[in-house]
Structure formats: structure tokens, C-alpha cells
Amino acid sequence: MTHQTDALRELFITGLVNAHAVEKQALAIMTPQVSRIEHYPEVADRLRAHIEETNAQIARLDEILGGFDTSSSTFKDLGLSMSGGMAALGHSVAGDEIVKNSFANYAFEHFEIAAYKSLLVLAEDGGFAPATPLLKQSLGEEEAMAAWIDEALPMVTRRYATLYAEAGASKAKV
């Protein structure tokens, strides 16, 4: 192996480990959100579906990492999961929790999209072709979730405004 190949391998594995931790963080963000939603069943349903997708993404990352005889970082997984849980908790005190969660989820999906795009570049440049279809599948799921949030934001905002006008912030927030 050349120095360049070794460096790409190291960067790719680090990126995979980081993506694994980010997916664990996503679970820690979405799971409390979905358990609190009352007035936005479409959002709850889509979050539940994306939680399943996220678990599959974690399994795909584990599969790729296993091909390199390595695994995820428990420390990184735990650290980002804790920060994700704190982010979800922080929004729960907001009067417009559902709207804030929509903003945060939209941004987070784009962070994940960027991570998978970067991993795909490293896979291509490093010659890690077996990882490409798995990464593309995860990228597609993240892009679909981001698009769904984008399309749903007007509905969420309007429903929040209607519920707020009818019953106040405490009833409209989730």
C-alpha cells in the first residue's frame, strides 16, 4: 500500500465511525420527539419510518466497518447520543417545539447528507467499491427525509399556528 492509499483508508474508516455516531445521535434526537407528538400524526409516522431507516443505516455502517476488521466507537456513539438527547430535551421546553424540531431535523438531515457524500468521495478515491451501494442507499434515505421535512414544513407551521390560535402554545407545541 502506498502512503496515499493508507491515508485514504484511515480517513474513510474515521468517517464511517463518525457517521455511525451521528446516526446514533439521530436516534437520540428522533425517539423522544416521536414519543411526544400529539397533533401532528404525519410527522410522527415519518419519524417512526426514519427511525427504522436509521437503524438500517447503522447496520450498513457496521457491515462496512466489519469489512475493514474494525467497529464503531462506543465513546463517540455515547457522546453524540447524549448530545442528541439534550438537543431534543432543549426543544421540549420551547413553546413552538414542533416547529423548532422541524428546523433542527431539516438541518440535521443535511448534515447527514453531506457526511454520506463525503464518504462516497473517499470510497471512490480509495477504491472501496463494496461500500458504495450501501452508502448510496443511506444517502438516498437521508435525501428523502430532508425532502419530506421540506415539503411538510408549511403544513406543520400552519397547523401549529391554527392550534396556537385556538388553544394556546401548550396545546399546539407537539
Rank of each mutant, 00 (worst) to 15 (best):
2 T>P: 01
2 T>L: 06
4 Q>K: 12
6 D>T: 13
13 I>A: 04
14 T>S: 12
15 G>S: 00
18 N>I: 09
21 A>G: 15
21 A>V: 09
22 V>D: 12
22 V>Y: 07
24 K>W: 11
24 K>F: 09
27 L>G: 05
27 L>W: 05
33 Q>Y: 07
34 V>F: 05
36 R>L: 11
36 R>E: 10
37 I>K: 00
38 E>G: 09
40 Y>F: 08
45 D>G: 10
47 L>E: 02
48 R>A: 05
49 A>S: 15
50 H>M: 10
51 I>Q: 06
51 I>H: 04
53 E>C: 07
53 E>H: 12
53 E>G: 08
55 N>M: 13
57 Q>C: 08
60 R>M: 12
61 L>G: 03
65 L>V: 01
66 G>P: 04
66 G>V: 02
68 F>D: 04
68 F>K: 05
68 F>R: 05
69 D>H: 14
74 T>Y: 09
76 K>S: 12
76 K>R: 14
77 D>T: 00
77 D>S: 05
77 D>K: 01
80 L>R: 06
82 M>H: 02
87 A>S: 15
88 A>C: 13
89 L>N: 08
90 G>C: 02
91 H>C: 14
91 H>G: 11
94 A>V: 02
94 A>L: 08
97 E>H: 11
100 K>R: 12
106 Y>P: 05
106 Y>L: 11
107 A>D: 13
108 F>E: 10
109 E>R: 08
113 I>G: 14
113 I>N: 13
114 A>I: 03
116 Y>K: 08
116 Y>W: 10
118 S>D: 12
118 S>R: 09
119 L>I: 07
119 L>Q: 04
128 F>Y: 07
128 F>M: 04
130 P>K: 04
132 T>N: 03
132 T>H: 03
133 P>Q: 01
134 L>M: 12
134 L>V: 07
137 Q>R: 07
137 Q>M: 04
138 S>C: 13
140 G>C: 00
143 E>L: 13
144 A>L: 06
145 M>Q: 10
146 A>P: 06
147 A>R: 07
147 A>G: 13
151 E>K: 11
154 P>W: 02
158 R>N: 00
159 R>P: 07
159 R>D: 07
160 Y>Q: 04
164 Y>S: 13
165 A>Y: 14
165 A>Q: 14
169 A>D: 02
169 A>H: 04
171 K>Y: 10
172 A>H: 00
174 V>Y: 14
